[in-house]
Amino acid sequence: MSRTVRTVGDRGVLVDCASMDEVLAVSAGLADDPPVGVVDVVPAARSVLVRIDPTVLPVDRAVDWVRRTPERPTGGVDVDDAVVIDVDYSGEDLSDVARFLACTERDVVDRHTGTHWRVAFVGFAPGFGYLVADDAGLTVPRRVSPRTSVPAGTVGLAGEFTGIYPRSSPGGWQILGHTDTVLWDPAAAEPALLRPGRLVRFRESI
C-alpha cells in the first residue's frame, strides 16, 4: 500500500485519500479493531484522521498500525439498510437550485429522492452528516451570503453534498426543504442518526 500517512504532532495520524470511496474504505478498515490508545477515527472530505492518546499509544506505533491495516470497501452494504427520511420539499432555495442546474424544481426533487446517499463524514455540528451520491447531478455552490439562522431539520445542498441541520444554526447551504426526523438526540444510546458509511434515502412527504 502506498498511502500518504502524516503524523499530527504526537497525537494523531492523518491518511490522505484520493476519493470519498477511499475515505470510507480506509476509515471502515481502521475502525474495525483499533488498538488501545486510539481515541477516534475521523473521516473527512479527502482524509482520515486517527486521534490517539500518546500516553497509551506512541505515534510511531500508531503510524505502523495505520500503514498495516487494510481498507474495507463499504460499497456492498445492503440498500435495505438505508435510513428513509421524509422531506417536505418547499425550501426557499429550490427555485435557485433549479435555475443553477438548468432543470425544473420537479427534477431537483426527483434527483434528490431518486438515489441512495451515503454519509461520507460528520462535522460542522454534532450529527451533521455530509452525504454523497455518485450520480445525483445536484452539485451546487453554497449561498453567497449564509443565513444567520437555519431551523433544525432543514435539508440542504452544498458542493457535492446534501445534509440536514440537526439543530438550529447559522448556515450557507441551499435549502431544499424540511424534515421532522430527529437527527441528534444526546440522551439516546445512538445520539446521531447519521454515522459515516450509513445509507440514506430521501422520500417526498405528502
Partner: peptide, 9 residues
C-alpha cells in the same frame, strides 16, 4: 467526552 469525533462531537 473523547471518542465521539466521528459523529461531530
Amino acid at each position: 467526552r473523547p471518542g465521539h469525533a466521528a459523529i461531530g462531537v
